[in-house]
Design a binder for these strands. Structure first.
Lengths: 338, 338
DNA sequence: TTGTAGGCGTTATCAA
DNA sequence: TTGATAACGCCTACAA
């Protein structure tokens, strides 16, 4: 079923059908309705590949997510959902590319085969091959996250450095003197994962400013790891009374480790973090955290991308969000340990 | 950058470049390496739209997920991840379509614009417009889930009816006489969501077979709903000693409601369910549950779909899985309530 | 071993 | 207001 068939049955030329469909040229009411009738009868829809070939754009954006197999965090899922949602509202389709490995065929296909008009890139490292690849290709893209050279690209990001510093100050205000930062998993941080490094920088800075004692650990992104990780931490550093974290997936496990150690939250021990709002609220007890507006960030990324696609020579734009910390049930004044 | 440019620079014809790329005709080593050198230098990749137009296939599959905005369950996320993963292994791209509403533009685009070679459809209802639409369109598709007329289509599914019946029998064997089934959210079940209805059927059957007392409730798909839902249930039916559920998202809340009511698990109260293995294991306490192999199901769906794409006239195939119940920490013998 | 040419289904330019 | 026709970039008979 193609446009020629419709034209034949409606007794007009193919171009007239095309114009009746796009509205880019006036078509008389009579022929328009005749064409529409045939289209409805045969259920015709323009072939997307042909249209893309002719128009030079696909009306599709790529969304590059962390490799399949790895479990996405709740915040990452929020990004995916909001990107897909925002794209759908703009009548854009989303092509998913799980990538990040070495020679990633999926990523190459998406970037280089003109399959998409632009790309939203997630989980960016300070030095990121994919960013280099995209810059070189000239394909419009927007990062959710940024590299160490953030001026070269458009991005939306969370200001982990500021937020973790805020968490430390909040805890310091409550009298805590011995804090730990629980980071994401060690491989990710070692690979130059921006939030991991920026969180550590913010932590170190605030610790120094307030004259506190801080330790830093990486922890795999799941509850069991959180439990064993905090268990060890408490054994090695019994003086700790509070934790700041960007590892939302591990928090449930940390609660368990504290319960095991006979420490109540927030009576004996405080936790503050950076997490997706939905997640922080639904945790038990609800986590005192900087509520990351994942929905807005994804939508903003799509918005920026659409703009870059329509005008690639526009200067890069950046959006760095530092939401306020919502006080919930996991931070309280320090109570001297007996 | 197109094939003509490569041909010109390599001093050969376009067809020779094409054949050098596809290998469908022998090309001398000399010219082949010359062509490759030019390709590497210019970073050329064939235009996917042109190729799709010519070949009549896109090397892309559609994945229709529940509408954006709604939170996906852990099991659904497992399906998405495994479908994306399996597709990537087969060098297929995945186009995401959040749909399920009334007139869904995204769904129509995917199904009808020849944007994809086939579709994996999730969260299917007993009567499902999208299935009707796909059948009518002739586009190959595979359901994760099935309608009330399951012979008309290819699918993979979880045998909720059998599994919930098994849960009931397991609980009955432990001496429980008063059980409740906690279903998914009421709208979904009212809309004819298959697993909801089949779970209820299995529950009713097993309850009758064992001469037990059963109640049935729907519950929104989140922890807070689980908490309030079970709270009410315990108030209205104090005789209850066990629950069977397919609502994994609500389980954490049910734990809280039981703790609030002063009931220990599994000492005073048992819970058995159907859930993604990863989820059941990571819950605290770990849930006794039929471990749904979400990864395998997604991969199987893709496998079936690839087969249907390559041979659309093959008979429909079905895969109904009923994994064994893994005994973890949430079911135990009934203990008379004082 | 390589080149020529036609067509996949659209859109858009040029004529009428 | 409408029609004929030339691309878009690729693949693949058919020829040489």
């Amino acid at each position: 079923m193609n446009i020629g068939e419709i034209a034949k049955r409606a007794g007009v030329s193919r171009s007239t059908v095309s114009y009746a469909l796009t509205g880019k040229r006036p078509v008389s009411e009579a022929t328009k309705s005749r064409i529409q009738a045939v289209i409805d009868e045969l259920g015709y829809r323009p072939n997307a590949s042909a249209r893309a070939l002719k128009e030079g754009r696909t009306r599709t954006i790529g969304l590059v997510i962390p490799p399949a197999g790895r479990r996405l965090t709740d915040m990452q899922l929020g990004f995916v959902a909001s990107v897909v949602d925002a794209a759908a509202r703009a009548d854009l389709d989303v092509l998913l590319s799980p990538s990040g490995g070495e020679h990633d065929r999926s990523f190459e296909r998406v970037v280089t085969g003109r399959r998409v008009d632009g790309v939203v890139l997630m989980e960016i490292r300070l030095e990121d091959d994919r960013v280099a690849r995209l810059l070189q290709s000239g394909l419009p893209f927007v990062g959710i996250g940024r590299t160490g050279h953030p001026e070269d690209m458009s991005w939306v990001d969370i200001d982990y450095e500021t937020l973790i510093a805020k968490c430390v100050h909040h805890l310091a205000d409550l009298g805590h003197r011995h804090l730990a930062l629980v980071n994401r998993n060690a491989e990710l941080v070692a690979a130059g994962y921006g939030p991991g490094h920026r969180a550590q920088a913010g932590f170190d800075r605030a610790i120094a400013e307030r004259g506190l004692h801080g330790v830093h650990v990486c922890c795999a992104d799941d509850a069991q790891a959180g439990q064993s990780c905090l268990g060890q931490l408490l054994a090695q550093h019994p003086e700790l009374t509070a934790i700041a974290t960007i590892n939302e997936a591990a928090v449930a496990g940390m609660y368990r480790a504290l319960a095991e150690a006979g420490l109540s939250v927030p009576g004996d021990f405080s936790i503050a973090g950076v997490a997706a709002q939905h997640w922080a609220e639904n945790l038990h007890p609800p986590l005192t955290a900087a509520d990351v507006p994942a929905d807005e960030l994804g939508a903003s990324a799509v918005e920026l991308l659409i703009q870059r696609i329509s005008d690639p020579d526009t200067p890069h734009r950046h959006l760095l969000v530092a939401p306020p910390i919502s006080l919930r049930s996991t931070t309280g004044p320090v109570r001297p340990r007996v």
